[in-house]
C-alpha cells in the first residue's frame, strides 16, 4: 500500500465524520415518517387485514438485500480492476449488512406466510430465491473471515461475488421455473395488481428510510474496517521494529 492509497482512506474518514450527523438525522426522520405512514396513513387490505403492514418491512428489506449485493458487485469490480483498497473495505462492510437485510426479508416473509397460508414456510419462488441469497451472503462472510491476508481475501471475495451476481438471474429463473412446475398459484402480490398510492407512498418512504439506514451503517462498518487495517499495519510495524532482522518487513509491504 503506497502513501497515496493511504491518503484516500484518510480523506474518506474525514468525509464520513462530516456527513455522519446529517445522515443520522435524515435516517431517523425518514424512519419516523415511514413508520407513522405505515401504521396510520396506509389503509388495511380488505383481504390481508392488518398483516398488510408487514409489507412495509418485508419489501424494503428484500429491496435492500438486492441493492446490497449490487453494491458488493460494484465494489468487487473496483477491487479487481482498479485494485482500490477502499473498494475492498466497501465490499467487506456490505456483506453482513446484506445478510441482515436478507434475514429480515426472510423472517418477515415467513411471518407473513403464517396468517396467509397457515404455515411458517412456503417454498414460494421469492422466498426460496432469498433463502439461496442468504446462503450466498453467509458463504461470502465466511470466506472473508477465513482468509488472513486482506488483499488476497478481497480478490477472492470479489471473484466469488461477481460469479454470484452472474448466477443470481439464473438461480432466480430456475427457481421460478421450478416453482411454477410444482405450485402454479403465485402468492406474493406485490407485483400483481397495481398498488394504490395510499400503500405505495408509505412503501417508498420506508424503502428510502431503509436505504438511508443502509448507507449510514455501511459507512460506519467501513470506518471500523479502516481502523482495523490501521491497527494491523501498526502492529506489524511494531513487530518489525522489535526484531529488525526478521523478514516481517516483507510482509508489511504487502499490506
Amino acid at each position: 500500500m503506497t502513501l497515496y492509497d493511504l491518503a484516500n482512506p484518510t480523506r474518506f474518514l474525514s468525509l464520513v465524520e462530516r456527513i455522519m450527523p446529517w445522515l443520522i438525522g435524515a435516517t431517523v426522520l425518514a424512519l419516523a415518517t415511514g413508520l407513522y405512514m405505515a401504521f396510520f396513513y396506509a389503509p388495511e387490505d380488505y383481504q390481508q387485514g392488518v398483516t398488510v403492514r408487514i409489507m412495509f418491512v418485508h419489501v424494503p428489506s428484500a429491496w435492500l438485500a438486492l441493492l446490497c449485493y449490487a453494491m458488493m458487485a460494484g465494489s468487487s469490480i473496483g477491487t479487481l480492476v482498479w485494485k482500490h483498497p477502499l473498494a475492498d473495505v466497501s465490499a467487506k462492510a456490505a456483506a453482513p449488512l446484506g445478510a441482515a437485510f436478507t434475514f429480515l426479508a426472510l423472517f418477515s416473509g415467513s411471518i407473513w406466510a403464517k396468517p396467509m397460508w397457515g404455515t411458517w414456510w412456503v417454498w414460494d419462488a421469492r422466498l426460496t430465491s432469498f433463502l439461496v441469497l442468504f446462503i450466498m451472503y453467509l458463504g461470502i462472510i465466511a470466506l472473508w473471515r477465513t482468509m488472513d491476508d486482506p488483499i488476497k481475501a478481497a480478490k477472492a471475495n470479489a471473484i466469488l461475488t461477481l460469479v454470484g451476481v452472474i448466477n443470481l438471474p439464473i438461480i432466480k429463473f430456475s427457481v421460478d421455473w421450478w416453482n411454477t412446475l410444482h405450485q402454479p398459484a403465485s402468492v406474493f402480490r406485490t407485483d400483481g395488481p397495481a398498488l394504490h398510492s395510499s400503500i405505495l407512498v408509505p412503501l417508498l418512504v420506508m424503502a428510502g428510510a431503509f436505504t438511508l439506514f443502509f448507507i449510514m451503517m455501511h459507512l460506519m462498518f467501513m470506518r471500523n474496517e479502516i481502523y482495523a487495517r490501521r491497527i494491523r499495519a501498526m502492529r506489524m510495524r511494531a513487530a518489525s521494529a522489535a526484531q529488525p532482522h526478521a523478514n516481517v518487513t516483507a510482509q508489511i509491504r504487502e499490506v
Binding site: V132, I135, M136, G139, A142, I171, W178
Partner: peptide
Amino acid sequence: LLSILVIPLAIPVLIF
C-alpha cells in the same frame, strides 16, 4: 466452506 459456496450456484443444475 467450498461446499457452502458451491451449493447455491449448483441449484439451477439440480433443478433442471
